[in-house]
Design a binder for these strands. Structure first.
Lengths: 228, 228
DNA sequence: TGTACATCAGTGAACGCGCGTTCACTGATGTAC
DNA sequence: TGTACATCAGTGAACGCGCGTTCACTGATGTAC
């Protein structure tokens, strides 16, 4: 399995990745259920029929995108929950990590937010499976924490789902904040900053960071006082 | 303004409502960004061109659906937050109210969940406006509560957004539960209940109720210990 | 009440267009000897 | 290393189809007198 791919296999993977990349870009402005196969191949510069060498349908491509967007996130989430710092430092780190991830992979985040409840069933299911895995992994990490003494597995899973959902809400807010700042950056090119951008006032991004941090903190306070 | 509509106006409203109803039904299995104008008119039984007498586009129809789905919910949410019962009773009532609403208007709930982050910008904005109004109204109600003494308006808004988001997460879970139970009901027609449906085990719906109730409770505990 | 005209919700034909899918193909890469 | 054959990623023509939008229209409803 460690031998290098043949030229043919390598080229095939390259085309496949080009299709995924093009689709992801096109999905910034529409939903998967309206994404056309020809649209994707046109963006890549291959014949429409080439699509079928890689995916059965756009739904199939969507499932592959879910894996690409969420598959590599498991270790990251695990270590974030685990880290040995104090609760508040952990929250600050987690929120910053989400902000950084949204900044680095905005299209992936948008895709997941959009298709989580989108019109394509297999994709919804793939996302739900990944999120359930996240929740289970977070539960397993929380279980190791001394603060979790006396908690039932059921309650730990309840809490971990709350954290995972809150993570998505936060990512979605950062995404909106980025978009808004991008728009403001465009329209304010030649003049002074618009409303909300004046010196001393916080940026949209900072506001979201503060909001998300406090929400996470409130949940963690609830956690600390859950028993008794 | 109190005089009865003319025959013409009444018929026009009837057709408009038929278009909205047909669209909502079609949107159970796809996203707005892939909904076709001809598809909607065909379902209603009018000519495609009749659509333009009521809406500029399917996006425009989507915005009207947002108003229909969320517009009438404001008083309901207000009174739920307000009610004079104890915290736990209020949570139980709120979760039951969500369950009942999802049961009564599943298509509306699905539409909002789907299009909140969907591919049609004006619809996303209309939903965000409605949810922001909800959050502001919840904040105003929370502010009257003696438990909110010492809270800044900013922190109250942070909390009310947490409640509103949690409300949507819960509604979405109930919707999935309903779908799952509908599927199980179909396939189990002639025989014994499938896995998870055996006597003594809780239904999917009950599981969601328990989960949502505990999550709301944890947030409320966090609220109680937020200061100091 | 009756008449003459205005309004306008819904019609139906027509348009150009892009869609998903099929099919037989090509030619570079891979493999067996 | 060289040859003969197999594989298969990508091609390009062709198909039938439903799409959104335009346009001039019809006939019931509304209004002015």
């Amino acid at each position: 399995m460690s031998h290098t791919l043949g030229i043919r296999q390598a080229q095939k993977q390259k085309t496949r990745q080009a299709l995924l990349d093009a689709a992801l870009r096109l999905l910034e402005e529409q939903s998967l259920s309206s994404l056309g196969l020809r649209e994707v191949t046109r963006a890549v510069g291959v014949a429409p029929t080439a699509f079928y060498r890689h995916f059965r349908s756009t739904a199939d491509l969507g499932v592959a995108l879910v894996e690409e967007a969420l598959g590599s996130l498991h270790p990251m989430i695990r270590t974030t929950v685990t880290s040995a710092e104090s609760g508040d430092e952990r929250i600050t780190r987690a929120v910053e990590l989400i902000a950084r991830h949204v900044h680095a992979y905005p299209a992936h985040v948008r895709f997941i937010a959009r298709e989580r409840h989108g019109g394509v069933q297999p994709v919804r299911e793939a996302i739900r499976e990944q999120l359930d895995r996240f929740a289970e992994e977070v539960r397993a990490e929380l279980a190791k924490d001394p603060e979790s003494e006396g908690w039932s597995d059921d309650d730990l899973l309840m809490l971990s789902h709350l954290y995972v959902d809150q993570m998505l809400v936060t990512a979605s807010l950062f995404l909106e904040a980025q978009e808004q700042e991008a728009e403001e950056g465009q329209e304010g090119q030649g003049g002074q900053e618009g409303q909300g951008g004046q010196g001393g006032l916080e940026t949209v991004r900072e506001r979201v960071t503060r909001l998300a941090t406090r929400q996470m903190r409130l949940i963690s306070i609830g956690r600390r006082h859950w028993l008794g």
